[in-house]
């Protein structure tokens, strides 16, 4: 790790002010320090978010609000989250390890960077890490990488489980800019596709801080489910995952949301599946037909074509489980 200084702000204002001068935020640090140890990230100055009052978890009749510094484990175990937004709890419990979940934060989880081995090793070329240097993954070891939303410059997959769960719930992120102004951004607008600038991963302005994530309550959220498929039974990133939320009172699908992880360059919503089910009778065949549509436009690389099949099956299984 290269040397850095650590600034301890006494409030949001001083935190964003420090960022305006070029500081970088550190939340749980579980990804940033890995990247720093690999020399992939070389911050000069870190701003410690731990002292800030951003850890609260609040559930009302209408919404769930997660402070950006709420720990993954605390959110996963929160009774209201478990009862009313189960897909959030399940996605968190399928992430990382108990120790890392005790450290990792909600805001940081959304901004974690790809596990692509080419990105995380400065001995390789990588357009995301060193723009213009090339993407050896496209012809290389790409079993774990994305099949949706990729470009000729980058096929990295987004690693977050939580983000997949949150985008089906129409979550939004609360942001605070360096000048103190705040805004709310739909989570679906936070992550960018790689295109020809894979190093630009989000739509955040320089120094802009995620302060909270808010999630509306819904009937569908209460019947939501997260399924993660992986080689190892635990503590591994997703090969493919599926998040679904369904409201199907009286046998008709009123509300349906479906997204997938492990396959997309960003958390990947599957409108093609949703549209095929919305307003239709909830039957096993309807689920199967809809799931078969998942992954429109997929562009597999040399080693991950199987993810197309696996994606459809994971979506179907998640739909079946959520509606059982």
């Amino acid at each position: 790790m290269q040397a850095f200084t650590l600034t301890t702000p006494d409030g949001l204002e001083s935190a964003t002010a420090a960022a305006a001068q070029g500081g970088r935020y550190i939340g749980g640090g579980t990804d940033l320090l890995q990247l720093a140890k690999n020399d992939v990230e070389t911050p000069d100055r870190l701003i410690d978010l731990e002292p800030l009052p951003l850890t609260e978890i609040t559930a009302t009749d209408d919404a769930l609000r997660l402070g950006a510094m709420a720990r993954m484990s605390d959110v996963a175990a929160h009774p209201a989250v478990v009862a009313r937004w189960p897909v959030i709890s399940q996605s968190l419990l399928a992430s990382a390890s108990p120790q890392v979940r005790n450290m990792g934060t909600i805001g940081g989880n959304l901004l974690q960077r790809t596990r692509c081995g080419y990105f995380r090793d400065t001995g390789f070329a990588c357009n995301k890490r060193a723009p213009g240097s090339g993407c050896p993954a496209i012809q290389g070891e790409n079993r774990m990488l994305a099949i949706l939303g990729t470009s000729d410059h980058c096929i990295a997959s987004h690693p977050s489980d939580l983000a997949v769960a949150l985008i089906i719930l129409d979550a939004s992120v609360e942001l605070r800019a360096t000048d103190g102004t705040t805004r709310t951004l739909p989570l679906s607008d936070l992550h960018r596709l790689p295109g020809d600038t894979p190093h630009v991963e989000t739509t955040l302005a320089p120094g802009e801080l995620i302060t909270a994530v808010s999630v509306p309550a819904s009937r569908a959220a209460m019947r939501s489910h997260y399924l993660k498929v992986r080689d190892r039974a635990s503590f591994e990133f997703a090969l493919v995952s599926a998040a679904v939320a369904v409201d199907a009172g009286a046998g008709t699908v009123h509300d349906i949301r479906v997204a997938a992880g492990g396959v997309g360059a960003k958390p990947w919503r599957l409108p093609e599946v949703e549209e095929a089910l919305r307003g239709r009778p909830l039957t096993p065949k309807a689920l199967a037909d809809a799931a078969a549509l998942a992954g429109q436009g997929a562009k597999p690389a040399s080693q991950n074509g199987f993810k197309q099949v696996l994606l459809r099956r994971a979506v179907l299984r998640a739909l079946q489980t959520a509606t059982a």
Binding site: A19, G23, R24, Y25, I26, G27, G28, G29, T30, D31, L32, Q34, L35, L46, L49, A68, M72, S95, A96, V100, M103, G104, T105, I106, G107, G108, N109, L111, Q112, R113, P159, H199, V200, E201, T202, T203, L204, A205, P206, G207, E208, L209, I210
Partner: peptide, 11 residues
């Protein structure tokens, strides 16, 4: 795994 909030554009 989780990381930090980071200043936005990762340029």
């Amino acid at each position: 795994m989780s990381t930090v909030s980071r200043r936005g554009v990762l340029g």
